[in-house]
Design a protein around this nucleic acid. Structure first.
Lengths: 271, 271
DNA sequence: TTGTACGCGTTATCAT
DNA sequence: ATGATAACGCGTACAA
């Protein structure tokens, strides 16, 4: 059988309520009682029941995370960053994918609400404003909501600097990570070409050219190539921080937080 | 306020228990009552409360998934496969990462047990046998438990076939996906070299050689290279199926299920 | 400072 | 076939 609060109370010779208070760190409790209760808790190996706590209390300490495609290469990094922040306060993440289908989106939402998630993270485009639940959206600014987005312009600036004096060819695959990054570089090329691969390696660059590959932290690139990193981890961290602030009712007015991707040289040096 | 079962019962003029029975599809209920209850459910937009159901019932319809490093490139694919199977029966996944730390492992386990997860998936090496909770481990066979593993030998066989007549250089990065794949090929090279990159591109191959890159479905490789795919998605699917069987008490004796990685030609054709 | 008692929304056990 | 009622484990006004 499971060790319950009643067990601890009985063993310690106090009331259930007292045990509950000690565990929640209620100040108005005698040092003696507190000590005694903690002892019993340890002795019996008692662990609060998260489900019961969720039903009785006002929070389940869970967060729902919805992706368009959970199998995309950056989701793990994002979840990792999110968990890094939320884990510290005992919250856990429930990951789901909607495949861009409106019905699945709706069902996912209803399912998560049925679980009393404290917050939602929409990583699948369309921001959805759900009353009563803290919510941030990724990539798309939600009107009136909080969103975390990639600073495409900053990326473009870095690429332009790297491209200085040469032609730029932007090669986008099926699922580019930086769909709106465009160097817009049109000066006459004097030093060859800079190839920017986003989502696919279509060809091998001429040895005298440079190549930039867009991807996540974990991606592997051929030696000598540059990397433009999609800041998935940082976005997860930011999303987590923003959510915590919202849940604590602190400032953080609805706004858009942007993260600049970093451009790394073949040696791994940031440019 | 939330629409509860009591609301439905009152509105439909029946008992809470009856509503519960109708929702669970209990057969011994009159067609009239069933119809009436369903009507009211629709009208009021009632949704069962997953938390309360978890407390009262015997299942929370949740599964805990533990990774060594959640930000690894294959975790998303794995979760996607797992969710594909578990989602069909209304189960959701809670993802956590342990960073290989024994203490975090333990805490993660305790936290998930506190949430009454129906099952656990260990993707971080050491299989942990937890009494009372269905559990599969990934990559490492647990003595007496169920595990899903990559068929390294099958991968080696395919590589050997591809390598026929040439030298093989296996280049492993920091986190190779196929740590134990070894072609063991030592015949005198008569047709150049086959480079196998696992986890890192150390160099660019000589144009006359072939190269195989080990990675996930989402990885991008230079044109003309071969790919050895880590079957993360399939492993997720398998893990899900095995878990469901365990939870339903069906056969599936403790064993090891292996998945063969596929070797793709530059055109995407399986070899 | 601590105890009493009720509520959270379901499921399950008896009755009827 | 259905109703009444007791768990499930915890939080919390209210009382003492």
């Amino acid at each position: 059988m499971r060790v319950t609060m009643a067990d601890v109370a009985r063993e310690a010779g106090v009331n259930k309520a007292t045990v509950s208070r000690v565990l929640r760190g209620d100040s108005r409790i005698s040092a003696a009682t507190r000590e005694k209760v903690w002892r019993t808790v340890k002795d019996l190996g008692y662990r609060p029941d998260a489900v019961a706590r969720g039903l009785s209390g006002s929070s389940t300490e869970t967060v729902g995370v919805l992706f368009n495609d959970l199998s995309a290469p950056w989701t793990g990094e994002f979840l990792s960053g999110l968990e890094r922040v939320l884990g510290r306060v005992g919250k856990e993440c429930i990951a789901k994918s909607t495949m861009g289908l409106q019905e699945r989106r709706r069902n996912a939402l209803l399912g998560l609400l049925a679980r009393h998630v404290d917050a939602l993270v929409w990583c699948d485009g369309l921001p959805l404003h759900t009353e009563n639940v803290a919510c941030v959206s990724i990539g798309n600014s939600s009107p009136g909501g909080v969103s975390i987005a990639v600073d495409d312009e900053a990326a473009a600036v870095k690429l332009r600097r790297l491209a200085a004096g040469r032609k730029v060819r932007h090669i986008k695959g099926e699922n580019p990570l930086f769909p709106s990054v465009d160097t817009g570089y049109s000066e006459p090329a004097v030093r060859g070409t800079l190839l920017v691969f986003d989502g696919a390696f279509g060809e091998s660059p001429d040895p005298k050219d440079d190549a930039v590959v867009c991807g996540c932290q974990s991606m592997c690139v051929p030696a000598g190539w540059y990397r433009l990193l999609f800041p998935a981890f940082e976005m997860g961290v930011l999303a987590g921080r923003v959510l915590l602030n919202m849940l604590r009712g602190k400032g953080v007015r609805p706004e858009t937080v942007t993260v600049a991707p970093s451009l790394l040289s073949p040696d791994g040096e940031p440019l």
